[in-house]
Nucleic acid binder design. Structure first.
Length: 205
DNA sequence: CACGGGATCGTCT
DNA sequence: GACGATCCCGTGT
């Protein structure tokens, strides 16, 4: 039982996914699997927005079996397999029918570091424990089995909390998103957000 | 520290 | 049948 409030649907239902990507910095991502709570402070995100963003899976509102989740209501988890190996965790935003999402790329470990180390097969805490979208999900025990769950559902095993951690605009580094060179002019948009000087953000390009 | 390549499989063409 | 919203390890400096 946590004393911190979960983010409400009103947080996720807003239209501006770029703003939500910034607002998620400093919020706390929590999982509760096998009676093990583990959590970390979100320190890096990327925004993706249909229909105009060529880097978004749902570009031009393309509806496929995979992208279907992105059209769900804000607060839904969108988890998919990348490069056949890594499970990437996104938060769907905006109301149902609008395919916006924020990719959570890195967290700063906060609670139950022991279980995170175990899930990663590591002994010591290093940035690579949770810095990077694929390793972060592994540390928290998130997999594509969690695709489509609602983070606002009180019964959900994955959610995001507000610990009143303030991240000012000056502390946010804005840069182009990673690994989307194919997205032409959209590849230049500064839709990647990191907390300045935080060692648990993934490496700059 | 920079780089290059292999792993590995779901998704869409 | 090609490719990816990645990671890790090896090599070389």
């Amino acid at each position: 039982m946590s004393i911190f409030p979960r983010l409400l649907p009103s947080f996720y239902l807003r239209d501006d996914v770029v703003q939500i990507g910034k607002d998620l910095l400093g919020k706390v991502l929590v999982t509760d699997f096998d009676h093990q709570i583990s959590a970390g402070i979100i320190v890096e995100t990327e925004a993706y927005r249909a229909p105009d963003d060529k880097a978004c899976h749902a570009y031009l509102n393309r509806k496929t079996k995979r992208t279907k989740t992105m059209f769900e209501t804000g607060g839904t988890a969108y988890v998919y397999l990348c490069y056949g190996i890594h499970h990437l965790f996104n938060v769907v935003t905006a109301k149902e029918g609008i395919a916006h999402a924020v990719l959570i790329r890195a967290i700063e470990p906060l609670e139950n570091i022991k279980v995170m180390l175990k899930r990663r097969g590591m002994e010591q805490v290093k940035p690579q424990l949770t810095a990077g979208p694929g390793v972060m999900t592994k540390a928290l025990g998130i997999s594509k089995d969690h695709n489509g769950i609602n983070l606002c559902d009180p019964a959900s095993k994955v959610w995001i909390e507000d610990h009143s951690i303030q991240v000012s605009e000056e502390e946010i580094i804005k840069s182009p998103r990673v690994g989307i060179d194919y997205a032409e002019e959209c590849a230049l948009w500064d839709w990647r957000f990191r907390i300045k000087d935080n060692r648990f953000t993934s490496k700059a390009k």
